[in-house]
Design a protein around this nucleic acid. Structure first.
Length: 466
RNA sequence: GUCCCCAUCGUCUAGUCAGGUCCAGGACACCGGGCUUUCAAUCCGGCAACAGGGGUUCAAAUCCCCUUGGGGACGCCA
């Protein structure tokens, strides 16, 4: 199995790449990388009504952002109709497919009736044995086995058996001449030499139908691995109504791709108790055996936490590069690099997303900086103001403006005046940041620099009429 | 309705295939505490689950059956 593994990810561009699709892509990609095989991207746009180029672009962009690269493709099924036509003809010639004249209205009516009578709605085989000639507007159907069972071994589910009465003569070519999904997937998977089909288990029921096509073609079936679905908090299949579900939405919220990847991979797959993986580790440790059978609810909080972990572990250079778009979005630009690096260092342990980190930068870099007078008033008692005046003098004489130097400076000042840091910490914090919660005071002062620090103290004390 | 699949803390899961080491482990969330200039981070501690019922067995979260619950499929969508 290690030799010659070929997997593929075949999204249909009828929507943005969502979390479920991304995880499926990830599993296929990991499996291929682990076995030194090939991973193919194929865009399934046979439904020209609903497919758009914009979605196709989003899918490609999302995969790139996640770092999931492909060795072949993207193939577009809409450009491969001639291939599918060849397969349809093969089936027709072998007598394993036939033309059907039934109209969609008729079929819909029959489906309704069957449902009402409590039967499984399926094609009633009206045209199956008529041996009708080709005709404009006719569809081509597969002659599926009518009795017996179809059994296959799924790499995560085990042996699956379905009675063939459950299958019906599925359409291979529509009345407009375009191939349907079932035919196109099978044809492409054969053409591209796909060995392992790893997909969502919403396709489990489709598998026997597709197997029927392989059999009609006289070909061997590939390996199948159906992975459980990702559900929303209401245990329904994850969809737009559950909020942010597109990959790009996570990028925009300030998630790091590795955090999303790591969060996604742990839904439905595990490696003992390990929660965090590097990419090489994932490639090394990933296996189909580690995939569970039951569907998993998407846990946004856990991914948020993971994102915090990755932010904390990332170096400032990397974070800066990723942070810039978020800063620009809120109007913070042209800040010198050293200052930003220092700011990021202070914000790292308290930011769960890049967006949050950018927000944190406001207190350092947003101009003009305007105090909230009400807030100030609450903290500036006469006693505090008098201490701050003296502190201001001391600070203006301070030479080494770094965390250590400032800490020493404060220590000397507080000891001499027998003042507790607690007394002036919060007032100073409000003066410097306009907030009651912030990184440590010395860190803040270092990022602000001497001039800005003194300036903020001055304007706040001045404003109080002193 | 019919068929297929699934079932461990609120959530993701380990353990299930090869039954005893599991009065069930880890993570997120939540609660309490330490550290502390605030908020975080960090450290320590706590809450919390084998869906129910029958078997098999000396022994079952683990094997079998039923019930219940959940998901999916049943398109000239993919």
């Amino acid at each position: 199995m290690t030799q010659g593994v070929v997997t593929r990810f075949p999204p249909s561009p009828t929507g943005y790449l969502h979390l479920g699709g991304a995880r499926t892509a990830l599993f296929n990609w990991l499996f291929a990388r682990k076995h030194k095989g090939k991973f193919i991207l194929r865009i399934e746009d046979t439904d020209r009504e609903r497919s758009t180029e914009e979605y196709a672009r989003d899918i490609i962009e999302s995969l790139k952002w996640l770092g999931i690269d492909w060795d072949e493709g993207p193939y577009f099924q809409s450009q491969r109709f001639h291939i599918y036509q060849g397969y349809i003809e093969r089936l027709l010639e072998a007598g394993n497919a036939y033309y059907c004249y039934c109209t969609q209205e008729e079929l819909e009516r029959k489906r309704q009736e069957a449902m009402e009578r409590g039967l499984k709605p399926k094609y009633d085989l009206t045209c199956r044995e008529k041996d009708l000639p080709e005709k404009a507007g006719a569809v081509v159907r597969l002659k599926s086995p009518l009795s017996g069972v179809t059994t296959f071994r799924d790499l995560v589910r085990g042996v699956i058996t379905v009675p063939n009465e459950e299958l019906d003569d599925l359409v291979l070519r529509r009345s407009d001449g375009t191939p349907t999904y079932h035919l196109a997937v099978v044809a492409d998977d054969i053409e591209l030499g796909v060995t392992h089909i790893i997909r969502g288990d919403d396709h489990l029921n489709n598998t026997p139908r597709q197997i029927a096509i392989y059999r009609a073609l006289g070909l061997q079936i590939p390996h199948y691995a159906h992975v459980p679905m990702i559900l929303g908090p209401d245990k329904k299949r994850l969809s737009k109504r559950h909020g942010a579900t597109s990959v790009m939405a996570y990028k925009e919220m300030g998630y790091l791709p590795m955090a999303l990847l790591n969060g996604l991979v742990r839904i439905g797959w595990s490696y003992g108790d390990q929660e965090k993986f590097t990419l090489p580790e994932l490639i090394e440790k990933f296996s189909l055996e580690g995939i569970g059978k039951s569907p998993g609810v998407f846990n946004q909080e856990k991914i948020l936490d993971l994102n915090g972990v990755y932010i904390r572990e990332s170096d400032e250079e990397y974070l800066l590069k990723e942070l810039i778009p978020f800063l620009e979005e809120i109007g913070i630009r042209d800040i010198e690099r050293e200052g930003l690096i220092k700011a990021i260092r202070t914000l790292k342990p308290r930011s769960k997303t890049l967006r949050e980190m950018a927000e944190g930068c406001r207190m350092y870099f947003e101009r003009p900086f305007v105090h909230d007078r009400e807030l100030l008033k609450r903290f500036l008692t006469p006693e505090v103001i008098s201490i701050l005046h003296r502190l201001r003098e001391r600070l203006s004489a301070q030479k080494s403006w770094d965390i250590q130097g400032l800490e020493d400076c404060f220590k000397g000042f507080l000891d001499e005046g027998k003042i507790k840091l607690k007394v002036i910490a919060q007032p100073l914090r409000v003066i410097l940041t306009n907030r009651t919660a912030s990184p440590g005071l010395f860190e803040v002062m270092e990022v602000l620099g001497k001039d800005e620090t003194l300036r903020r103290i001055d304007i706040s004390l001045l404003g109080e009429g002193i």
